[in-house]
């Protein structure tokens, strides 16, 4: 060992080992295998997949369903991420201040996150029912005839996003905690300068929470591209007119229902690329806006 360059001692590696092994076995290895399978004819049923070169890629390039699927995922992302962030940030900021009964409201906001997503989806099947669902009845109070939520492509997309606005507990907690860390005196100083509640939100709270908000946006982008599987599966099964055929749903269909495991593996890689592109774009925009120091 040359002097001057310290190497991490063995104990550090020893402590790291269990986690590293798990990551290697459960994430890195499957990901590499998955990438390999993408260039085979593996059906998921046979044992000896054969290398087929770019055959799956050629199939992908002329796959109209995949186009629908990417579109469905993109629209879902554009709907769900802003709605979920708005809900988490809005409720987090509203409920951060201690006030009587506040804890019950905070519990209420967190509760849907604890509900298993299948159960939440089943509840939403009822909520969205065009005949007796409470949502349409609520609309009826305002004289609106209501929607056939899950039969129309547009409303089906909204419906899934609507359901995913409820399990926002983690983001809500992060905003709540971050807001409570901000120094109350800054707000008093701003109030002395004549800065009202909205001015304080715009000039103090949001800029100071910017790093947290960015983190939440990145995390929610990754999450939103993936967690729509259960609601789509339970509520719409990818229909109507492929409006909710999100990438995870399409991957599942290909890999496990249509015996095109290899093709599913390729689209999984596409999902990863899509995620990476969206997050890169997000970070570029943030850098342009100079939200962070």
């Amino acid at each position: 060992m040359t002097s001057g360059r310290a190497r991490p001692p063995l104990t550090a590696w020893a402590f790291l080992a269990p986690y590293a092994v798990a990551v290697g076995l459960l994430i890195v290895l499957p990901a590499l295998l998955n990438l390999g399978y993408a260039f085979t004819d593996h059906t998921g049923l046979t044992r000896d997949p054969q290398f087929v070169g770019l055959a799956n890629v050629r199939r992908m390039l002329s796959d109209g369903f995949l186009l629908d699927s990417v579109q469905a995922s993109a629209i879902h992302l554009a709907l769900a991420v802003p709605l979920r962030l708005l809900a988490a940030v809005g409720l987090g900021l509203l409920l951060a201040a201690p006030r009587p009964g506040g804890r019950w409201f905070r519990v209420a906001v967190y509760l849907p996150t604890v509900v298993p997503d299948v159960a939440l989806a089943v509840i939403f099947l009822w909520v969205l029912n065009p005949l007796y669902g409470p949502l349409n009845q609520l609309l009826g109070l305002f004289g609106h005839p209501g929607f056939t939520w899950l039969s129309d492509p547009g409303t089906a997309r909204v419906a899934v996003a609507l359901m995913l606005v409820f399990p926002i507990g983690e983001g809500f907690l992060v905003v709540l905690a971050a807001r409570r860390l901000l120094d109350g005196r800054l707000y008093e100083a701003a109030a002395l300068e004549g800065c009202g509640p909205f001015g304080q939100l715009r000039r103090l709270t949001l800029p100071m929470l910017a790093p947290v908000l960015l983190l939440l946006a990145v995390r929610d982008t990754i999450l939103t591209l993936q967690v729509n599987f259960v609601p789509a599966y339970v509520l719409t099964d990818g229909r109507p007119a492929n409006a909710t055929l999100y990438l995870p749903v399409y991957i599942f269909d290909q890999a496990f229902e249509f015996s095109s495991f290899a093709y599913g593996a390729l689209i999984t890689s596409v999902l990863m690329v899509v995620t990476a592109v969206v997050i890169t774009a997000l970070l570029l925009v943030v850098r342009r806006w100079r939200v962070l120091r």
Binding site: D183, R185, A189, A191, L192, G194, C195
Partner: peptide
């Protein structure tokens, strides 16, 4: 309200 009073405050930790 505070901002209509012609007072300026310097806080202990400066805020």
């Amino acid at each position: 309200p505070p901002h209509r009073r012609a007072v300026a405050m310097v806080f202990q930790d400066y805020a």
